[in-house]
Amino acid sequence: MKALILITSLLAVAFATDNIDIKNEKNVNTDVHQTVNIDNHDNVANVNQYNGWDSWNTMWDYNRGVFAVRLLSKKACVVSRINRNVVPSLEHLNKASQEKQKANAPPPPSMTYTVTKNRVRNVAQFGKHIAALCNNIPTYHATEVQGAALFSSQQGCSSISILRILGISLCGNIGC
């Protein structure tokens, strides 16, 4: 009986869904805040930033190794591969989302992506979570840019910051 209770408890933790709401306390007179939803069963995370027209949503599918960003202002989605050397694991994302950012913390790592001009024809290829996020809106592929090419592609960038632990710039004519 004790073994059954232990197994049930472990399964509940393994398949738990964590929902965290992070208020942006440093900006006065603003309603900017982020929510983080982690589904340990499906190994996905959804981060939403609520900021009026500059709102965005992301879906991180760790099993498939892809993420998508839906930009409200651009009326578009961007899909790319997860760089596991930079992107935090689900465990780190969960921990970071529940902790306050230290005032003297170093700036978060950032990544820049070049967005292709060609639209993705079948978002279902990225799995049900990303398909749900990007369904019925223009969706584009993006490729991470490193080194000198980073400076030549800064035109028309949209930037997002995830929990002050990761910055992403999406550069190109998104939604045009």
Score class of each variant (00 low, 15 high):
residue 174 I to P: 03
residue 49 Q to T: 12
residue 45 A to R: 08
residue 162 I to M: 15
residue 103 A to P: 01
residue 44 V to I: 12
residue 127 G to W: 10
residue 13 V to C: 04
residue 38 I to S: 02
residue 111 M to Y: 01
residue 60 W to E: 03
residue 176 C to A: 07
residue 113 Y to E: 12
residue 161 S to G: 13
residue 66 V to W: 08
residue 150 L to A: 07
residue 173 N to S: 14
residue 11 L to M: 14
residue 73 S to Y: 11
residue 65 G to P: 08
residue 13 V to M: 04
residue 80 S to D: 00
residue 176 C to R: 00
residue 110 S to L: 13
residue 143 T to G: 00
residue 31 D to C: 14
residue 12 A to T: 15
residue 16 A to L: 03
residue 23 K to H: 04
residue 69 V to M: 05
residue 47 V to Q: 00
residue 6 L to F: 13
residue 20 I to G: 02
residue 160 I to W: 10
residue 134 C to K: 02
residue 18 D to S: 05
residue 82 I to N: 12
residue 15 F to L: 14
residue 74 K to N: 06
residue 47 V to R: 00
residue 170 L to T: 09
residue 68 A to H: 03
residue 68 A to T: 03
residue 132 A to Q: 06
residue 2 K to H: 04
residue 172 G to Q: 03
residue 131 A to G: 09
residue 113 Y to G: 09
residue 70 R to G: 11
residue 80 S to W: 05
residue 137 I to P: 02
residue 175 G to T: 09
residue 129 H to K: 03
residue 10 L to Q: 07
residue 148 A to I: 04
residue 81 R to A: 05
residue 45 A to D: 02
residue 156 G to E: 06
residue 169 S to D: 13
residue 36 V to K: 08
residue 77 C to Q: 03
residue 153 S to A: 15
residue 165 I to G: 00
residue 108 P to F: 09
residue 56 W to D: 06
residue 7 I to S: 15
residue 162 I to F: 07
residue 54 D to V: 01
residue 70 R to C: 09
residue 140 Y to K: 04
residue 4 L to W: 05
residue 176 C to V: 09
residue 135 N to G: 02
residue 54 D to M: 09
residue 37 N to K: 14
